[in-house]
Design a protein around this nucleic acid. Structure first.
Lengths: 205, 205
DNA sequence: CCGGGCATGTTGACAGCGACAACATGCGGT
DNA sequence: ACCGCATGTTGTCGCTGTCAACATGCCCGG
């Protein structure tokens, strides 16, 4: 739709889309240059006109996956009905935490891809983007924590570093459940783990 | 030393050792069947007499890496000098947490390998091994939490699920720092992150 | 209107990988 | 002394990422 100016018409987009589809089912290791090209109906090596590297393609796909995670977090945040400011702020924090874990469990291909090779490609923390419409998970978390301070749910001196505590706990749980030693935890224990993690963080902040 | 009964004399051990060395520098993706075989001075495919699969070799190497993590945790636990029971129990918990993160940061190849493919190979939680000399990280954590209950530092009703909270927080922090978006956090912020995570968990338990 | 430049896509090749099959070797029990 | 079978080797296949050389056709200057 955007740059239908060429042979294929914006191939880059098609490649990323195909990559996202493969990642959904098979995780980052399924985002194979040749497979992606095949999927896009183009011959291998075509991708090299748009990505320097396999890593670069994977990074683009990962960004898309991260966006999916952010979208779910936003959706769940907006579903919180509570109106009293303090419980509302807590509920909105819990909502993004649950969204994070749910996403990891139901879309583990995307989840693992989103965090694959973040160390290598430039993907550090996002700039302190002022735009309210951000779907970046880190920005969303920071917003919830700021909210908690604003309504007086947590003292301001607890705010610095709070994102590390909250993020680490939820991310660690997700990673252990999806990829790690907690992989085949029975469902009731999964529930216990999620609730305990959220409650412990909330008490600790 | 054990089964010098053959051509090479316990090759399996040599392969795992070579794998551990490669993993240390290059992480799980460096544990390549052919490279490991080369390193062990044996031709490719020799490994297939000892491991069904590349995954199986990697799992053996991963177990060794996990053991290294456990050993550091034990060492750090034993270094705690505090004698008053309650602060001692807290200090010992913090010690394994710090050990976990330090290990991830200083031996990130081993750390990433230790948790690679835990989902696939059988590596769920360890049996409730009664042996006091365990070096399994999960068992060590459980012991610290039991200790906290015994000395009355945390109420017994908080004990169920506590391992999930503590483990998730520390593991998540390690993963974010080593592999994830927090990869190139400046050193002072790393310190802030570690301290905040530990303090938050301690308050929340 | 047209001709050529250059972005885009293709073909072909190479080395490295995991896996399989067929073959070689030599230790251990009989 | 000998043979079996565990152990190690050689050869091969298909797959991958990457490079180099080649083909195509859109767009711009004349």
């Amino acid at each position: 739709m955007e740059k239908r100016t060429y042979h294929h018409g914006n191939l880059r987009e098609a490649l990323v889309t195909a990559g996202v589809a493969l990642a959904r089912a098979g995780g980052p290791s399924a985002v194979v240059l040749r497979a992606v090209s095949r999927e896009a109906g183009v011959s291998h090596n075509a991708a090299y006109r748009h990505f320097a590297d396999h890593r670069e393609l994977l990074a683009a796909v990962a960004a898309r996956c991260m966006e999916q995670l952010g979208l779910l977090m936003v959706r769940r945040t907006d579903q919180v009905a509570e109106e009293e400011p303090v419980p509302r702020a807590w509920a909105r924090l819990a909502a993004i935490g649950r969204a994070y874990v749910d996403f990891a469990l139901t879309e583990h291909g995307w989840f693992r891809t989103a965090f694959s090779g973040a160390a290598a490609h430039g993907g550090g923390l996002p700039r302190p983007d002022p735009g309210a419409g951000s779907t970046d998970p880190y920005t969303l978390l920071a917003a919830r924590l700021d909210e908690l301070v604003e309504v007086g749910a947590i003292p301001p001196e607890r705010r610095p570093g709070a994102e590390y505590a909250a993020w680490s706990a939820v991310h660690g749980l997700a990673d252990l459940l999806v990829d790690g030693p907690l992989h085949d935890l029975p469902a009731d224990r999964v529930r216990l783990a999620v609730e305990t993690v959220l409650a412990t963080v909330a008490r600790g902040l």
